[in-house]
Design a binder for these strands. Structure first.
Length: 490
RNA sequence: GGUCGGUUGGCCGAGCGGCUAGGCAGCGGUCUGCAAAACCGCGUACGGCGGUUCGAAUCCGCCACCGACCUCCA
């Protein structure tokens, strides 16, 4: 079992061996952002989580079609079905065209994802680009009898559906509980039941984002886009659907209901949900007003941030927790992640310079097995990283001459680290600038340190220390090595 | 109120019945002209109270506290 990928399926509430519908191929759909604000730390969690899954599946040899949508219509700001569209609201506040808002924040999201080294998905469909498909899905549901038209809107008939299908199976809710706990909302008169949700909504006169349909000029309900677009690009049945835990209910539950009503069967084999980022133990969210944007993290411009944190620090930080656990943000935790990652990446550099001996005193095969076993156990990246740190000790010991490694093992170790650190975990070394300018200045620093070496050879400690101290004042860290020196900026 | 989840050493985080991760911080040592880095060693934590068991952080019960979802949220 250990050598097969197992993933936790929210639907069954247990880990299951992953078996794709079509051998060698995986269809993956993940709910992307609603683009009405800057990308924040919370957005990075599912992005990094499913990027890890995407990368790992590809590493295992699967051909993966990864679809991650952009929600640019249908997401209402207030009480269900009655509020203003989030995009339209932002557009009104900023005096922009709705599509301008969408473009600005889609660009922002893309820019930040690229910084985080999150691979672009295979297809990134927009809800507004799939109105026809959504209308078509609404028609299918109407035809199957699980929806009804009311005053130009179309609602999903939850109670009727619940008679034939287990509504609430994903989120663990019972229809009776939902009925008992429904809030009193205004404007529910169009619906047969408060549990019903809009799959097509008639636009009020002032509503800008609208499309014609046989029911009304209107717009699709939020849950429709994922049903329509996943079906279009991955088929009526596909392998994995992912998203944040906060989407489990009602969004994903509604998707399941829509698919079953439209197609007569389940669409998704494995439901995966990442947990939340917390701030002082509370969920970080845009609507809670405690979200810190990724831009802020990258340049340290926020009262809660002691310093700037690089995108790779954020990425590594997320990988040090298993995706189904909450992860609590703090400066201390982030700085620990930063230093830890630095140690890991330094060891990778050291690894490149290692000399092989005839015999190994280290067990590389075992290390490798452990890393894969951890990843196969529902993407347990923190365990895999722990093993990688065991390897860091090996590497440094070998560099210190306290352990030795054979030629074959050295190749295996290099391959292991390049696979896990870069290919699967998607970490990057800090960009080495290679312009003519930097080459010249690097040589100048080297020259200074050569002079320091000479001073040291002459036991002229005053001069040696002066060079080191002055460079330190400029932000250079100088270290003596066995046969020379090394330095880095900042 | 309902449903689900959590409570692990200074901090972050694994663990899912015995072999007591890992990182960061800290302490001691080795190396070094000094420093840094690196290496070696150290710290025995699992909310409380009971129970099951030869044995529990891990299973069961009760209690306490925290959180998520139930309305938009990644």
């Amino acid at each position: 079992m250990e050598n097969q990928l197992q993933i936790y399926n929210t639907l069954s509430r247990q880990k299951e061996v992953f078996e794709p519908i079509h051998p060698g191929k995986v269809g993956l759909y993940v709910c992307g952002p609603t683009v009405y604000g800057k990308a924040h730390l919370g957005h990075a969690r599912p992005a990094v989580t499913f990027d890890l899954l995407f990368r790992y599946l590809k590493h295992l040899g699967y051909k993966v079609r990864y679809v991650r949508n952009i929600t640019d219509v249908g997401h209402l700001a207030n009480d269900a079905d009655e509020g203003e569209d989030k995009i339209a609201k932002k557009a009104r506040l900023d005096e922009l065209e709705p599509m301008e808002v969408v473009q600005i924040y889609t660009n922002d999201y893309h820019k930040n994802m690229e910084k985080l080294n999150v691979l672009p998905p295979s297809i990134e469909p927009r809800a507004t680009g799939h109105i026809i498909e959504q209308i078509d899905a609404v028609e299918k549901i109407l035809k199957s009898g699980y929806a009804y038209e009311s005053k130009g809107s179309v609602y999903f008939d939850v109670e009727k559906y619940a008679k034939n299908f287990p509504y609430g199976e994903l989120s663990g809710r019972k229809i009776e509980d939902l009925q008992a706990n429904t809030r009193d909302l205004d404007g529910q008169d169009e619906k047969h039941s408060p549990l019903d949700f809009a799959i097509w909504k008639k636009a009020s006169p002032e509503h800008i984002m609208r499309w014609p349909s046989r029911w009304s000029d209107g717009f699709p309900g939020w849950h429709m886009e994922c049903t329509a677009m996943s079906c279009k690009y991955l088929g009526e049945t596909f392998d994995i659907h992912g998203g944040g835990m906060d989407l489990t209910f009602p969004h994903h539950e509604a998707e399941i209901a829509q698919s079953k009503a439209a197609f007569g069967h389940d669409s998704v084999h494995y439901w995966m949900h990442n947990n939340m980022i917390t701030l002082n133990g509370q969920k970080m969210g845009k609507s809670l007003g405690n979200a810190i944007s990724l831009d802020d993290f990258f340049d340290g411009n926020h009262t809660l941030l002691e310093k700037a944190y690089s995108p790779m620090t954020i990425r590594f930080f997320m990988l040090t927790a298993q995706y189904r656990s909450t992860l609590d943000f703090s400066n201390e935790a982030l700085q620990a992640a930063e230093k830890g990652m630095d140690r890991l990446l330094k060891a990778v550099e050291t690894l490149e310079k290692l000399d092989a001996k005839t015999e190994s005193t280290v067990n590389i095969a075992e290390l490798k097995d452990k890393c894969y076993a951890a990843m196969n156990d529902d993407l347990n990246s923190p365990i895999a990283i722990a093993h990688l740190f065991d390897g860091v000790k090996m590497i440094n010991s070998i560099a210190d001459g306290k352990a030795s490694i054979s030629v074959d093992d050295l190749e295996a170790l290099k391959s292991l680290y390049s696979t896990f650190v870069f290919e699967i975990f998607g970490l990057k070394k800090p960009e080495a600038e290679s312009s003519a300018n930097t080459a010249a200045y690097e040589k100048a620093i080297d020259l200074l340190l050569q002079l320091r070496m000479e001073a040291k050879a002459n036991k002229d400690w005053a001069t040696a220390d002066k060079i080191r101290d002055e460079l330190a004042n400029l932000g250079f860290v100088v270290k003596d090595t066995k046969d020379g020196f090394s330095w880095e900026l900042k």
